[in-house]
């Protein structure tokens, strides 16, 4: 007797957001990426569309304070953000470049000016092909200035700008609208604030197909279950028609994973812990794997080996499980 597979029927879907712009679209990117568009829970292809998660990789505008296990991979470029970005897309398979402007932080010695940041963004755009996401330094006042300049410098390229939070979203939203860019809206592991922030950003006049949500997802071992449940609830809300919960989600998996002591503790940390490099890479890959199951549409990765593992994992998951 044939078994009839029960299929859930949904009425809603995740909003599609396109990152980047090709020459025809007024930019200079070699390709664009589509985030979102799913009409089912992640990887349940037999119930609807499950969008392929996109891999973004991280570049800083200053030399990063990362673990030494990164050095063999990017040590030759980490003082040159342009070369670093090129290496990520050419050698390590980054589909999107994610630039963090740490150097603009006014708490630092000789902080970079908004103009410096804009120039760097322009230079990266001139020397790379991938769509770009840009995050400010985290200081609200400085970011207002920096992101405004970046939005102008990148006009036409349809980049994503962040982080827009509850208390600073207005100026970032204005910069995004002016340059026709996407906005990354961050909520602190809080589904209610995620929804409210989306409403406020839409009220400002940002089009729905320009909004990306960052739920500030935790890393493995540090509350990832809670982040997972929030993302799952948001996705489920999107599928039953809640348009304010239906924006594609970005998870900063790499930076969260490498904050864990389990990722960076030395080889002799304890019996059964194994060598640090393998452990750290696996910590990042496991974090990202869980978050794409939770509904991440784009994951930000840090270690090239972790990115490689996740890329293979996504290929496996995208084999349709149609019944």
């Amino acid at each position: 007797m044939p078994v009839e597979i029960f299929k859930e029927k949904y009425t809603g879907k995740v909003q599609e957001v396109v990152l980047g712009a090709t020459k025809e679209e007024g930019g200079t990117r070699a390709y664009t990426v589509k985030l979102g568009g799913s009409s089912a829970l992640p990887f349940l292809q037999f119930e609807g569309e499950s969008a392929r998660p996109v891999i973004a990789m991280e570049v800083w505008d200053i030399k990063p304070n990362w673990h030494e296990c990164f050095e063999p991979y990017i040590g030759d470029v980490w003082e040159d953000p342009v070369a670093w970005a090129q290496k990520l897309e050419q050698e390590y398979g980054a589909e999107v470049i994610y630039l963090t402007l740490k150097g603009a932080d006014p708490e630092r010695e000789n902080p970079k000016s908004a103009d410096d940041c804009a120039k760097l963004v322009k230079k990266i755009l001139e020397n790379t092909k991938a769509p770009l996401m840009v995050e400010g330094c985290g200081n609200y006042e400085k970011d207002n200035e920096v992101l405004q300049a970046v939005a102008e410098a990148a006009a036409g390229e349809n980049i994503a700008l962040g982080m827009a939070e509850k208390d600073n979203y207005r100026s970032i939203a204005a910069a995004c609208m002016m340059g026709k860019h996407c906005i990354i809206a961050r909520s602190p592991v809080d589904i209610n604030i995620m929804k409210q922030l989306n409403i406020m950003i839409l009220d400002m006049g940002v089009p729905a197909d320009k909004i990306i949500n960052d739920p500030l997802a935790s890393g493995l071992g540090y509350g990832i279950e809670y982040s997972y449940s929030i993302m799952e609830r948001a996705r489920y809300g999107a599928l039953v028609g809640d348009k304010m919960m239906a924006f594609p989600i970005v998870c900063l998996a790499g930076q969260e994973a490498w904050r864990a002591k389990e990722a960076v503790a030395p080889d002799d940390a304890g019996p059964g812990w194994g060598d640090q490099k393998t452990r750290g890479i696996m910590w990042e890959a496991m974090t990202a794997a869980a978050l794409i199951q939770g509904g991440a549409d784009i994951v930000l990765l840090r270690h090239p080996e972790a990115a490689k593992l996740i890329k293979e994992h996504i290929e496996d998951l995208m084999v349709p499980n149609t019944y």
């Binding site: 209610n192 604030i193 809300g237």
Partner: peptide
Amino acid sequence: RSIYCDSWVKVFRQR
């Protein structure tokens, strides 16, 4: 039936 946010009444009217 809908996820709470501070503008829940407004969202209800705009569906």
